[in-house]
Structure formats: structure tokens, C-alpha cells
């Protein structure tokens, strides 16, 4: 590592008096400043756009589902692929740090699925999505449901090429979650409040939570559902149909 006192000669003998502060890292004129001015995530965004173009050309609609661990993403998916599978081709990308457990659950419904393990990574990115699309090769006109890694922070930043982003929160998590994780709720097209069957047993205010979500994302749609009882799922399926 180049330390300040290791910096190369300034090009003029010391101890000349000179106005620049000593310890300047670079000798004047020795380095070249290159203007870059590009988005940090330009490469990911480019790959995501390619994924989007590829899917759009095949009539494939991808929905990126994000939540904290345990909000019910996989159970919602199991219901959805079972309920919607007769209407149109449905395929699933399962993102987890480790294991194939979620893919095995989805496969149990007879749905096409590919598992992406991110290892130490905390989110899916556009390159992983591209590999998943290659492995899965979804049929034309498919609904492609992408279950992101359970995490309410990191996945918000990474475009996969999806049509829409869905954020799921369960009623056991706390009404104020949209305020605590505003970046995630700010990018959502739809918020699903899941586990509504547990509302009688927990201190959760559905309307207040929806207001919190709208305070960081005024146009966001909010639906209350229960993957266990099926309450509200028809509205969620209607919304999915609208995405085509």
C-alpha cells in the first residue's frame, strides 16, 4: 500500500518552500485524472436491461419478490404456482444463500424451478438472473416469479430485469417496518401484507402500515393477503395479470 511518506518525489528538490500541503499523495503531473462519470451499477443495469429485453421478446413477465426472512415468500409462491399454473405457464427462480430446500418445495407443486445459491452474497443480481434464465428457459408467455434472498436492504439496489418489484411484509413483523427499511419500500410496485389470518393475535395496524409504505412511496399498491387461508389472494393474482 502506498503510504503518504512513501509518495514518489515531487519533481522538485525538498526543502523548497511550496504551498501545497506536505504528504500530498501524488507528484504533480505524474498522475492522470480520468473522468469516469458512470453509474456504479452500470454493468448490472446493462445486464438487467438485456434480461428485460430477452424476456419482453418472449412475452415473459418477471416479478421480483423481496422480504425479510420468514415473511412467507415461499408459501405465497407455492399457492400462486398451484392456483395460476392452469391459466398460463409459471416458472420460479429461488434465491437463497444456501440449500435447495425452497426449490424442492416449489418443485413439489410440479412447477419449473431453478435454485440460485448466492453463498456469501445477500441479494440476487442481473448476472445470476441471466444464468437462471439460461438454466430455466421459461416458456413463451410465462409468468416468472423470482424469490430474492430474504433481506429487506440489499436486494433493493439490484435490478434483475424484472417487470415489477413486490415487497412482502407479514403482520408478525411490526407496523413500522416500511419506515425502518425505507429503501426497500421506496422501490416497490406492490406491497403484500401477508399472514392476515394472524391479525387477531398480534398488535399490527394494517392501515397504519399501508400509510407508512405510502409515506416513502406515494403510488405503491398495498394488498392484504393470507397464503395460509387464501384471503385476498384473488386480488394479488389480478395484480399479477395486470403486469402483462
Amino acid at each position: 500500500m502506498l503510504r503518504e511518506d512513501d509518495a514518489p518525489d515531487h519533481g522538485h528538490p525538498h526543502p523548497d518552500p511550496h504551498p501545497h500541503p506536505h504528504g500530498c499523495r501524488r507528484p504533480s503531473g505524474a498522475g492522470e485524472t480520468v473522468t469516469v462519470e458512470q453509474k456504479v451499477l452500470a454493468k448490472n443495469d446493462l445486464l438487467a436491461e438485456r434480461n428485460r429485453t430477452w424476456m419482453t421478446g418472449r412475452g415473459i413477465v418477471a416479478v421480483n419478490m423481496m422480504s425479510s426472512p420468514g415473511a412467507g415468500k415461499t408459501t405465497l409462491l407455492e399457492r400462486a404456482v398451484t392456483d395460476l399454473g392452469g391459466r398460463r405457464p409459471v416458472a420460479v427462480v429461488e434465491g437463497d444463500q444456501e440449500t435447495r430446500l425452497d426449490a424442492d418445495r416449489i418443485r413439489g407443486t410440479g412447477c419449473a424451478v431453478v435454485q440460485v445459491n448466492t453463498g456469501a452474497g445477500c441479494h440476487l443480481d442481473a448476472e445470476m438472473m441471466r444464468e437462471a434464465l439460461t438454466a430455466l428457459s421459461p416458456a413463451e408467455g410465462s409468468l416468472l416469479m423470482v424469490e430474492n434472498v430474504g433481506n429487506l436492504v440489499c436486494p433493493a439496489l439490484f435490478d434483475l430485469g424484472e417487470r415489477s418489484k413486490v415487497v412482502i411484509i407479514s403482520v408478525t413483523e411490526g407496523t413500522d417496518k416500511p419506515l425502518k427499511y425505507p429503501y426497500m419500500f421506496a422501490v416497490a410496485d406492490l406491497v403484500l401484507i401477508n399472514k392476515s389470518d394472524l391479525l387477531p393475535y398480534v398488535d399490527f395496524d394494517v392501515e397504519q402500515c399501508a400509510q407508512h409504505a405510502r409515506s416513502v412511496n406515494p403510488d405503491v399498491r398495498v394488498l392484504t393477503v393470507s397464503a395460509t387461508t387464501g384471503e385476498g389472494l384473488a386480488h394479488w393474482y389480478d395484480w399479477l395479470t395486470e403486469q402483462q
Binding site: E32, V34, T35, V36, E37, Q38, K39, V40, L41
Partner: peptide, 10 residues
């Protein structure tokens, strides 16, 4: 903003 502005090389 989330951008790379510039760099110094050489």
C-alpha cells in the same frame, strides 16, 4: 446518486 466520478491513474 451512486456514481464513479473520476480516478487518477499512472
Amino acid at each position: 446518486e451512486l456514481q464513479i466520478v473520476s480516478m487518477e491513474v499512472g
